[in-house]
């Protein structure tokens, strides 16, 4: 298909001509998604580990729920956050709808089940090896969870990267809660959606390639760090 090739050519030309507005969009995308990942990770990792290490009534139901939430469409998350943050909603007084903060909240919520479910699985697998030793040392659920998270840090990096990928590639939720406001809440994905709807397919594709490049760079960096650290620890 010749148009496909033409669109790609044009896309790369546009990337070559990287302008400041585009850099702002890239920077905002990174800021929002990194914040979302950091916030979500800090809560979801201990939560997932606790689910793996402790037993309490309702635990299995909770595990199933978290796993099921993996399939939650981003738009639904966006809508729920929108209704919460709207002036007419329960958290309306904060007035953060249509700001980057709202997008951080939406992405953090969106990736929470992903991090929690995968972390739980990883910790549960390792727990079979560690459980007796931990109990023998007298370690309770908190100390055990933290120790396992630390020991699994290399696999957790992969999980967190996957979550980052989902966050930065997501469009439905941030569109709803951010509003795609030029210069304020326009990120890579909403810009792509906008250019697509304007029929400017080369620019949309160019932005898509930039997005892919960023995610790729981040993954390469994380992979190299991980390899080095893993070799160190055997």
């Amino acid at each position: 298909m010749s148009t496909f090739g033409a669109v790609f050519g044009e896309a790369f030309r546009l990337i070559g001509a990287l302008d400041l507005a585009l850099l702002d969009i890239v920077w905002l995308s990174l800021r929002v998604s990194l914040s979302a990942v950091l916030i979500s990770t800090v809560v979801a990792l201990p939560f997932g580990a606790a689910l793996a290490v402790t037993r309490f009534p309702g635990r299995d139901a909770l595990v199933v729920t978290v796993n099921a939430l993996l399939g939650l469409p981003a738009v639904v998350v966006g809508l729920a956050i929108y209704l919460l943050l709207s002036r007419a909603g329960p958290l309306g007084t904060f007035g953060i709808l249509f700001t980057p903060a709202a997008m951080v909240v939406a992405q953090a919520v969106l990736i929470f089940p992903l991090i929690a479910a995968l972390a739980r699985q990883a910790v549960a697998d390792a727990w079979r090896e560690y459980a007796e030793q931990m109990r023998s040392l007298g370690a309770g659920p908190v100390a055990s969870s933290l120790a396992l998270l630390h020991d699994l840090r290399f696999s957790l990096v992969t999980i967190v990267l996957a979550a980052f990928g989902r966050a930065i590639a997501e469009v439905g939720a941030v569109m709803i809660v951010g509003g795609n406001i030029d210069g304020v809440t326009r990120v890579m994905t909403t810009a792509i959606a906008l250019e697509t709807s304007k029929g400017d397919l080369p620019l949309a594709l160019g932005l898509g390639i930039v997005l892919l490049g960023i995610v790729l760079l981040l993954n390469v960096g994380a992979h190299l760090l991980k390899e080095r650290a893993q070799r160190h620890h055997a």
Binding site: Y130, Q133, S136, L137, A143, H150
Partner: peptide, 23 residues
């Protein structure tokens, strides 16, 4: 002490200080 010791993925010293911290 078990047949196969479970050691944490941290330094030799860190394994001991962890056990001390726990108690």
């Amino acid at each position: 002490v078990f047949q196969r010791p479970v050691l944490l993925r941290r330094s030799v010293l860190g394994n001991l200080t962890f056990a001390l911290a726990v108690v």
